[in-house]
Design a protein around this nucleic acid. Structure first.
Lengths: 197, 197, 197, 197
DNA sequence: CATGAATGAGCGTTCATTCAT
DNA sequence: AATGAATGAACGCTCATTCAT
């Protein structure tokens, strides 16, 4: 009974080791790392790697999907907190901060995915993430904190190009610039020039 | 006078053909295009390509610098027009529109440059472009159109991540989002939520 | 016990095939033979060749070291025979004959090594060979057969330039000329001019 | 009248410049120097080089023949001196010393010639040199200084393998070893062991 | 005649993928 | 199921040679 499951335990462990190795290597050295190197990092032979991921593209796609899953989870828990009473604007700001940090680390992965034409991304996870973000935006708009014309696609558009290689300071600045464009609030440091006053 | 240059006419033409082909191929297929393919697109043999650009890195650098030269020129003529009397905000908007269109085509080129370590970018041209943009920003700030805290680096930061692969509509939307973040004006489409009313 | 090595049987066979092919091709056509050609001669793909020898230099070095190992072995067994009672002069003559035949085949290999800067030659094997030859020379000098001033370096000097491309007859003649310079005996074919008579 | 010769003056000068450059470059860096580099050293364009020597092989052959001409000249003047009264053995020794020094410098040239299958060597010059050396040997044999069985081919055989890359000291030692095989005289440093005494 | 830009086969090497063990 | 040796197309680059100027 349990016998049929036991050989899978190794396979599952190997799959995880491979994904970890792939994420690390691709993140660190770009999508040009060799399959041999990823396999070596994972501590398995290439053949094993290919048993789990028949193609480099498949492997990269898997890494990207793993990434997307994390983002989705973050979006959904943000929405959950907002539903539970916290302010939408705050959740959105936190979420975007988290997103940009995650993307900073994994931009290489996305570039890799792109360069391999990995259009195989997990549509479902993406859709759930989009729904959560849409809900947050709507809530923020109800609060009067978010521009009425902002949509989920705007978020995706902006974050599809989030700065990856820059320093944390630059990422923070980028987020500030972006957020000020999305919210109805003017930046506090800029009060004097605001013609609305 | 120009007669002494006559045998070079072909070479000059070839150099241009090669640069055009390189820009096109790298833009279209990424930095992994083979030199052979670029040569074929240019209608020359590989040897000819290597006579003009001893290294793939050299070729990519040349393409990038050509791109930068265009941007610099656009920035400087925008500044010239502003000095001649036109409104800074308008020139900036036009310039950024032009920049994003140019970047849309050449983002892959910059990625290629990056992946090849082409840090040989023409610093001088970049500095002149930066100066022109800085002048435009200052003028816009004097007009009260641009946030006081905006700097040239903000422009570079935002445009280093301008969307390249998206449709023109998406690029326009991206620009709108960005601009609203930079200017003190609220978006007109968003009247209802504008607290200034 | 030897069972754990079984998957390597093919690899070992391939390594040998590659070394044989390399020796043959370099000997026949000089060091300019392509790696592809060596691989083809060995009946493997280039990739296999590179798995065994990461660089052309490595391959050539391996061939040279193999050659040196043979020579060393020949020298040591000659010395062993002499120690066991046979006459030093005879062993030296036999050894040099064997050396020149071996060198005839592999001179091109050494040239190739030289042109590739393969200074990685197996120093230890060379030293052991030198020791064996030195012992033989000393024994020959005790017998009064070898000139007192002859050293191992003389042998190396002469054999570093042994004729490679000539016919067996020419190689034999070369050895005769050389030996007359090394030994205290005049040539038998030269009786009339011999002042000892 | 002189007009028809004037354009040739340049051509002759160019031919010499090219040969000089080729000799220098091939001697210094081996036969792998590029035609472009030889042309550049000569101060002409590649096309000019190819007008004078349609093939790299032709150029190398020319350099080799030039070398052979020098050796022939040396052999003939040595013979002339001997005919004029000097001792054959002395002339032979001097000649061989000169030959080995010349070869030391130009061994690369010979290797190059060999690797290109330059069987186009100037047969006539070689024949004249051989005749001169044969005469010297005969004279030396009459004097009782040279072994009766020594022939011109022996000289060619030995010198086809003269050490090129070694130090002057090693070349001198090589010559000593060789001469002892050619002459009827034992080495002076070896008196005690000489059984003839 | 000289020039030097153009040609293109070939080189050493890499790496995603396959397959015998 | 895992291993890792084998495969071979492709890459960046070189260089003897040709040919338009």
């Amino acid at each position: 009974m349990t016998r049929t499951q036991s050989p899978r335990a190794d396979a599952v462990r190997n799959r995880k080791k491979i994904l970890d190795a792939a994420r690390e290597q691709i993140t660190r050295h770009g999508s040009d790392v060799g399959m041999d190197e990823i396999a070596a990092t994972a501590g398995v032979a290439v053949g094993t790697l290919y048993r789990h991921f028949p193609t480099k593209k498949d492997l990269v796609t898997a890494v990207v999907n793993e990434h997307i899953a994390q983002l989705t989870e973050a979006a959904e828990s943000a929405q959950a907190r907002q539903t539970a009473g916290s302010r939408a604007l705050e959740e959105i700001t936190d979420l975007l901060t988290r997103l940009i940090e995650a993307t900073a680390t994994n931009h290489a992965v996305k570039a890799a995915a792109h360069s391999l034409g990995a259009d195989l991304v997990d549509k479902d996870a993406k859709a759930r993430g989009a729904a959560a973000i849409a809900a947050l935006i709507a809530a923020g708009q109800s609060d009067g904190d978010i521009h009425q014309d902002v949509t989920v696609d705007d978020i995706f558009l902006l974050f599809s190009t989030a700065p990856a290689d820059q320093s944390p300071a630059e990422r923070a600045r980028w987020l500030t610039l972006i957020l000020t464009g999305l919210t109805t609030h003017s930046r506090v440091t800029d009060g004097t020039a605001n013609p609305c006053r």
